[in-house]
Simulated scan of single mutants.
Amino acid sequence: MTQETVPVRTDDADPALAGRVRTALGAPDAGPLTVLEGGRSGLTYVLRDGGSGHVVKAVPPGRPARGRHDVLRQSRVLSALAGRGLPIPAVTARDEEAPAWFAMELAAGEAVEPVLDVDTDLSPRVARERMTRAAGVLGALHAVPLDALAQGVRTAGGELPDPATPHDELLRWEETMHAVPVELRPGSGDLLAALHADVPEAVAPVLVHGDFRLGNLLCDGLEPTALVDWEIWGIGDPRVDLGWFGVFTDGTLFPGVGRVVPGLPSEDELGELYRAAGGTQPQTPWFRALARMKMAAIMGHNLRRHREGRHHDPVQEQLPPTIAALIDSGRDLLAGGAP
């Protein structure tokens, strides 16, 4: 079947892309290609075909396939992880012709961040159990042998990136922090100086998701079904993922935009669950502080973009107290003022 044989539908969000996807999937009668709300890595759509469905990620037309728009890079790590017992959506099609795209199975479930999705009715019991199981997923993810991962990525047409050290991670997010106006990041200079003063030695590198949290893990009831949003995956220090995940256990870090959810595992408990599932590294104050700096930098950058009119989102105006709280918490951790 050629692309020209697939009829154009007026209800597709992108008729040209929809025709390519239906052809590659061999599904000319699939439903309309619709925008998936919340997708941020490139353009994200859903295509339903009878009882099944596909999530389609595409490079925006005219944009280079770099950074978060390099959707094929995401597809290759997903292909490499297939068959390992992890909740990873299966890649169902891939097309390198510009604008590139790939499709993966639409998994059942919902992705809820308990401390930030304040309007959800997710019970504390379910939130705790999901977070507990997610810690096991992270441990198993970090236990994937890199040689096997490299072979899988090569088979899918890519190569593993060079490992990033803790110092590399610090420099990466420090650059984001420095792009935030000084008045929006009080105390950040002290936090950055403290982080630079005591950078840990790197440990054996692993596959790092880069944004591992419940908001990126679909769950059907209590069962994890799909770990998504792989736009910043890399090879690096496992404590980067572990520290980042821990930020989302504490609603007090998000005043005005988050909430305290009783019964969530502590960061120490998450670390224990993680190691029981194959993870080898403990929680440390430095990586916890790094994660808080990273979150403050990302939020500050988003607020800046809103105020400059590059992405209108009035909700961003609620972030200054949270940015300050994250920075203060990071400074306390490195000063020994918090566990």
Rank of each mutant, 00 (worst) to 15 (best):
Q316F: 00
P60W: 00
G51E: 13
P7M: 11
L138I: 15
G136W: 05
L72T: 11
M293D: 05
G19Y: 00
G109P: 10
A13K: 06
Q151C: 12
V180Q: 08
T284K: 01
G19C: 14
F287P: 01
P255K: 04
S75A: 14
E223C: 13
G139K: 01
L214C: 04
W101G: 10
I232Y: 00
L106H: 11
V182Y: 11
K57A: 09
R130M: 08
L290G: 03
E159L: 13
D12V: 09
S79M: 04
R84N: 03
G271F: 01
W230N: 01
R76Y: 00
D70G: 09
R48E: 13
L78T: 05
D11N: 06
L43K: 14
D121T: 15
S52N: 11
L149A: 06
A108G: 07
E231K: 06
G19N: 07
L171I: 05
L149K: 09
A289H: 11
L33K: 08
G210A: 08
V59G: 01
L184N: 11
G221I: 09
M299V: 13
L195N: 04
R76E: 01
V208L: 02
D12F: 04
F248V: 14
V56Q: 02
G251Q: 06
R63A: 09
V6Y: 02
W244G: 00
D49L: 11
P145E: 08
P145G: 02
P89T: 12
L47P: 07
D250C: 12
P285T: 00
A297H: 03
